[in-house]
Design a protein around this nucleic acid. Structure first.
Lengths: 177, 177
DNA sequence: AGAATAGGTCAATATGGTTGACGCATCCGC
DNA sequence: GCGGATGCGTCAACCATATTGACCTATTCT
């Protein structure tokens, strides 16, 4: 049983203060509330279209990596293909997402947004961006670096290349294109 | 439609670099993956007990604010009472959570963990703490401050007192008790 | 040729959320 | 003290999103 007045389990007496239980709990709670409020930003738009958060996640990553294969999207979302297939079928039947047979590997189905899909994703992104930009601006540039650093540390090392790849592409786009 | 090569919508030419689209998208993605991986830490324990994440959230906040009323928990979780009642009924039937009639207001049901509930919450907390502490340690103390600052900025101002109250209590406990 | 891979689909099930409508006990203001 | 408001519980129907397991086709790799 955990006694809140005792040193946290697994931390030695020499642990820095910022690794003690109140600081850990604060991180857990802020991450929970921060994440929750970030995604709430797009809910009204989704609801007006009869879509859910699962559709949003798919739209987001397809927008982020146009031409990605279904298997890539499955790795990003970490769900089963049966679960994704329903979402993807919805999005395609509404003309928001298009498929194209892979060039190198004709078994692949490369996903991209249609014009209507890009428009919707833009609306959804704006809603989320508004909140994130406000949080960034309130906290300041240096805080943003710390925000990223802690979150990267939460991602299992083997998954980091996948996440960093998203970023690498967008920076190339914005710098060069 | 959103053109990734144009300045982001809603940002003026004078916006700081850290508010531009790639930086915003990086924040969205790291928050998504960071949150996801944090909560995954407890899933194995929950599954072995036949509980879900909703039970975990309830246990967490009851552990954090022993004696809180059902309405307080509803505000923290931001779900309907019908949804919470199923979870709470589960936890009480398993002897993990106990209710006590409110002292000042006898309509209230004040929630607390039983000994078994506290033991389970301790196990779950340890699983999550392990990941959070590792992320903190990798990023460093200064980064943790930035992490908190951005996340606080994501929480609507009217909800911040609720979140800060959680923290205030635990710091009092650790400092004085 | 045969195994492995990418993708799709059918079916059953679980979790956790919603709205809406009630009922009961208790508290508060007049 | 009465009446409305509040705190909590509950029944019912429904919805969104996830799961496991089985099986299929097309394509690629060895």
């Amino acid at each position: 049983m955990v006694d809140a007045s005792a040193p946290a389990l697994g931390t030695s007496r020499a642990s820095p203060l910022f690794l003690r239980e109140p600081e850990i709990r604060r991180g857990i709670e802020l991450l929970y509330f921060g994440y929750t409020n970030m995604i709430r930003g797009a809910d009204a738009i989704l609801e007006s279209r009869g879509l859910g958060r699962a559709h949003h996640r798919a739209l987001y990553f397809i927008a982020r990596q146009p031409g990605l294969a279904v298997s890539d999207l499955l790795r990003l979302l970490a769900i089963t293909k049966q679960s994704l297939s329903r979402v993807l079928a919805d999005l395609m039947s509404r003309g928001l997402v298009a498929q194209q047979v892979g060039t190198h590997d004709r078994r692949q189905r490369l996903l991209s947004l249609t014009e209507a899909g890009a428009e919707l994703e833009g609306l959804l992104f704006d809603a989320v961006r508004e909140r994130m930009a406000s949080a960034y601006a309130q906290a300041g540039q240096q805080a943003v670096g710390g925000f990223w650093a802690v979150l990267v540390g939460l991602i299992p090392p083997q998954d980091r290349p996948m996440v960093e790849e998203l970023d690498r592409r967008s920076r190339a786009t914005f710098a060069g294109g």
